[in-house]
Amino acid sequence: MTRADKILLAGLLLISLLSVAVLYGRFSIFPAKAEPVQAVITAQGKLVRKIYLTEGVNSSLVIQGRVGPATVEVDGTRIRMMGAPCTGQVCVKEGWIGRPGQTIVCMPGEILIRIEGAAPVDAVTR
């Protein structure tokens, strides 16, 4: 191992540590822009509400569907259909959703709750 080798090794080590600091550090030159996750509620094809799903916000609201009012509950980063006037109750049994891409559909009431935002990766294969 020559002197130049050692200098090269030290330089590369420095560069890789520096790149860790630059790319993963708190004061990153490329700040990660996280797309906010929001629940989009539509009833009978029309947009009713957009709710940002952020930690610590709890609320419930009533959506007027085709067969009557349905109750939607928001609990921080997740949302569910608490009560619906239909017979099947499929939307209520769907439970809580919160990941981008998930949906709750109420067919009789024509209500659609859809989570939008940057979808996280499910899995990585090689």
Partner: peptide, 16 residues
């Protein structure tokens, strides 16, 4: 173009 590196240095640069 260089002759100051041994195979270790060349291989390191190659890996990068």
């Amino acid at each position: 173009y260089t002759n100051c590196f041994s195979m270790i240095g060349v291989s390191l640069a190659g890996a990068v």
